[in-house]
């Protein structure tokens, strides 16, 4: 248990952390736009919202598959425990992703398009909530026996996870608003500008409440923070990032809200990593104890890690370049 993780295990833990971040920022803005979609009935705004993410959502969502598959590959025990511990949340996540994904294709095709529109924003909201709730549940810890999950199906349904779930819904909504501000130059942009401060406040309040609850309930995290007081720096950066968002909204600099929300997510993630390390499943499975054998890790390293991942980053950037700038959709 106390053994130090191998270099390859560290490398893959790093790749997974990186992929989670990429996922959270990229699919976060898709999901956020999805949530915002539910906040208006104006079809023109709705169409433009969907258009602003239509070329990206599939590639963005795939980073979630990358996270899942890399976990399965490099830390199979974590993959097994995490998914069985969150059986129902994962089910909801998948249903949410299904409704979100088919909405792009189904909405314009007649029939009950109100079902698909509702599915789009409810699905996006559910996905955001579940991901946030999973973080809260991890802070509280997961029951593990003999390398398998040994708790009940509703262990995760407690006040702290609910708060973090709501917090992430606000957070993604903020990211989505930032995206719309970035990609639009029509009245949609003003619409998003007006709402961004509200989402920032909602997120801040739910996270502060969650932090208070953590102080009372989650001793594992607290004792780790006592050991690593520097982790609180991340909290400071989070606060500054939120101020940056508000400043961007006030001064109407179109790129600033999105960039600072992304910075917020980055440092929140850094904080969580500092609070959990070296555990992957708090507080029973460490990076070292969960790592797949070296043969598996090195097989992945030489191909996927060293060659494919950089290529992926290049062409992902190319795809985003193709659709750069303010977008308008035409010709329905």
């Amino acid at each position: 248990m106390s053994a130090a993780p191998s270099d390859l295990a560290l490398f893959w833990a790093g790749v997974i952390a990186f992929s989670i971040l990429v996922y959270v920022v990229l699919d976060g803005f898709d999901l956020g736009v999805g949530i915002l979609f539910g906040a208006t009935r104006d079809t023109e705004l709705r169409d433009e919202m969907m258009g602003s993410i239509a070329p990206f959502w599939d590639g963005n969502e795939t980073w979630l598959v990358v996270v899942g598959a890399s976990l399965f590959a490099a830390f199979p025990v974590v993959y097994a425990i995490f998914l069985s511990a969150f059986y129902f949340p994962v089910l909801l996540l998948l249903f949410g992703l299904i409704f979100r994904g088919v909405a792009f294709e189904f909405r314009g095709r007649g029939g009950p398009s109100s079902i698909w529109s509702a599915g789009f924003w409810i699905g996006s909201g559910v996905v955001a909530f579940v991901q946030g709730a999973a973080v809260g549940a991890m802070i509280l810890g997961v029951t593990v026996k003999d390398g398998q999950f040994a708790g009940g199906p509703f262990d995760w349904l407690r006040p702290l996870p609910v708060l973090t779930g709501i917090g992430l819904m606000f957070g993604y909504a903020l990211l989505g608003a930032g995206w719309l501000i970035l990609k639009s130059d029509t009245r949609l942009r003003d619409w998003a500008y007006r709402r961004a401060p509200f989402f920032a406040a909602g997120m801040a309040v739910s996270l502060i409440l969650a932090a208070l609850l953590t102080l009372v309930q989650a001793h594992g995290v607290i004792s780790r923070l006592v050991e690593r007081p520097w982790a609180l720096l991340f909290v400071v950066v989070c606060g500054l990032a939120l101020l940056g968002v508000l400043h961007g909204v006030k001064s109407r600099r179109d790129a600033q809200p999105f960039a600072f929300t992304a910075l917020f997510f980055l440092s929140a993630f850094g904080f969580l990593a500092a609070a959990f390390w070296p555990y992957m499943i708090p507080y029973s499975i460490t990076v070292a104890s969960a790592a797949a054998p070296e043969q598996s890790l090195s097989f992945l390293f030489w191909g996927a890690g060293l060659v494919v991942l950089p290529i992926v980053l290049v062409y992902s950037a190319v795809v985003h370049m193709v659709f750069r700038g303010k977008l308008r959709i035409t010709g329905h």
């Binding site: 795939t62 598959v65 598959a69 399965f72 199979p76 993959y79 797949a292």
Partner: peptide, 18 residues
């Protein structure tokens, strides 16, 4: 997953990456 992950995992991992 826990038992065959060292083999199935990298294969699915390559599928996701490539």
């Amino acid at each position: 997953s826990a038992r065959t992950g060292p083999i199935q995992g990298p294969l699915l991992g390559y599928e996701a990456f490539t």
